[in-house]
Design a binder for these strands. Structure first.
Lengths: 349, 349
DNA sequence: CAAAAAATGATTGACGTCGATCAAAACTCC
DNA sequence: GGAGTTTTGATCGACGTCAATCATTTTTTG
């Protein structure tokens, strides 16, 4: 019942503790024959090294870094908050975390930060990624040095990371479409979409998922080509204001950020407004839900993602397999299933 | 930077390690004056005992028990699966788990299981609860012996548990109502509700939340009194079949279980069907979503709940404060945001 | 003020692992 | 078969805590 120790393994393999230790921590200078015997004994006994004891022994500290885009984007502020909050609690378990702000969506900036990291001893990094192949080389270098790399929210080149932690954005778009479709109750309609930029992969993916479902399952709803906003609230507000003055739109869907502008425009408008779906639950989208200016928020649960990032990074660093974690799915918020407002609560404190 | 050790505390307090140890592990035989000094030093240095080292030292094993209702209920099977799965991974970290099946929704059965637990040395239990005050005494006894008790999915008497892990069922009902309301796109309608029993607190709560939102925000939708089903698929199928033969129902909402019956009836029916909302994502509700027999599933994410139960129990047992965990909210599933089907995947393997 | 009781100090051996060191044994190779 | 190399064994002292023991000091009590 009690887990076998390395001494047990050594005994079973017929070698000394020292040799077993050399194999387990591959320190070299061990004959293939002995190595073989030890590996067999490990398999036979089901030995798993006690990470707590190991960490205690060497006084290990896990050094993690999170690279997230700079700027005043409410969503990334929320991400940042969650990282800090989680880091506080992990501190006592030997995890130190550094949050590195990177110039938003600029490959060069990210590249630079990665190079800076190369010189330091870091155990794992989570990166809000860019698909650019320009990153491949430095990421490969980092990983060659044993650094665990995961993509967060937005993926990196597949070969450059051990895992991607984020939602499926096509599914997110499809989900939005489903709700828009259902909201029409079989009646015809016309949806105006908004996007920051078609170069942002997540925006493009959401749009394609959105289109796909509406075309297939709700053909009586027209989908208009997206208005490009650069995620700028000012642009969104102006465009939305103009739009809302014309009747005929039965739904609005913004795949990108800058929702405060959209919400401001909706707030001004009188009378029946179109069905509105946006992404990411932050202070203003939350309030807009409560005040009925919008109907739905599709959220990627950054709290769950951050949680997962920590867990995955530790598992990668410890080279153990992943414990069960909640699945990541695009979450639909209406005004009735909002979580307690932790951020607001914190602000008060 | 490195955490202070108990030796540091002892030195700071001007007492010996032995005395500091006596205070920390309250072994008694220590003068109030010394005790005071030690506590002050603890506060001053911010000492937190190293749980990994402590567990290593005493070879601690956390003994947990989960009490869940017996029977072939798909939802509880899912719960059971998650417990087993999580337990496997926790095993190597010194956690043993026992799942105790209790006669469904019978206070006596639960009571009996609790009494049986009284004799054994258990560190924590999670109970799919009953609100009954009959349980208060045995729960109080257990807790007096230092057993951590949390309510799972369905709450226990408030004073009898340290935490409740489950969704707010009123919010769940409100959420269902919101989606039903939105699906009517401003048109009038008529919803038939189904419930297992009004004595089940979660059923009653969901219904009241459902009613509340529809009456307040969608007064043009009629809510019919619930058909009582005892969560029996046969009953549901018969009732639904009958219902579907009449036109005029624009939505169906089942707050309880037994959905396979409802789905079977929907499957038989031809033509346009009402908007359908049910609770809990399990094999058949998942399939029904995919095959478009129903529109929405409100789920309480048992995977998240189980995860949380383990985390909370450990925190209670270790007497440390709670690490950040994902919020528990009623989750809305449509056919486009379903998680990967872990259970099915497992069945195959 | 002496005897009993209570509190404290000092110390030790676990727990399982790491990262050493040093000597002894087992091999190569010529 | 002797020098050199590689591989082993044995052992030690951390890491921070727990759970002991035993001797000593301090306090209480009659």
């Amino acid at each position: 019942m009690p887990s076998p120790t390395l001494s047990d393994v050594a005994r079973a393999a017929g070698v000394s503790y020292a040799t077993a230790d050399r194999v387990i921590n591959n320190r070299g200078n061990v004959a293939e024959k002995s190595s073989e015997k030890v590996r067999k004994a490990v398999a036979a006994l089901g030995y798993v090294r006690n990470i707590a004891a190991a960490n205690l022994s060497r006084g290990r500290i896990y050094k993690l870094a999170f690279l997230i885009p700079q700027g005043s984007n409410a969503f990334f502020n929320r991400i940042h908050q969650h990282i800090i909050h989680t880091a506080e609690h992990q501190q006592r378990e030997g995890v130190t975390v550094e949050v590195i702000k990177v110039a938003a969506f600029a490959v060069e900036g990210l590249q630079e930060s990665l190079l800076a990291l190369l010189g330091r001893d870091i155990d794992g990094i989570a990166i809000v990624g860019l698909q650019s192949t320009a990153l491949e080389k430095s990421l490969a270098q980092l990983r060659a040095r044993g650094v665990a790399v995961v993509g967060l929210v937005s993926d990196l080149p597949q070969t450059s990371r051990a895992a991607y932690i984020g939602i499926d954005n096509i599914a997110a778009g499809r989900t939005a479409a489903r709700t828009v479709g259902l909201s029409h109750g079989g009646h015809s309609g016309c949806v105006q979409t908004f996007a920051g930029s078609m170069e942002a992969r997540d925006h493009a993916e959401r749009l394609s998922g959105f289109r796909e479902v509406l075309e297939a399952d709700f053909p009586f709803i027209d989908v208009l080509d997206p208005i490009m906003t650069k995620d700028d609230p000012i642009v969104l507000q102006a465009q939305a204001r103009e739009l809302l003055s014309h009747p005929g739109f039965t739904a609005l869907y913004n795949v990108g950020a800058g929702n405060s502008g959209l919400i401001a425009a909706l707030q001004e408008a009188k009378g029946k407004r179109p069905f509105c779906v946006v992404h990411e639950l932050v202070a203003h989208s939350r309030q807009a839900l409560l005040e009925r200016h919008i109907d739905l928020v599709i959220d990627q649960r950054p709290d769950v993602e951050i949680n997962r990032a920590f867990t995955v990074l530790r598992a990668l660093i410890d080279e153990k397999d992943l414990p069960p974690m909640p699945d990541l799915v695009p979450t639909i918020y209406v005004r009735d299933n909002l979580p307690a407002d932790a951020l607001t609560d914190k602000m008060k404190a």
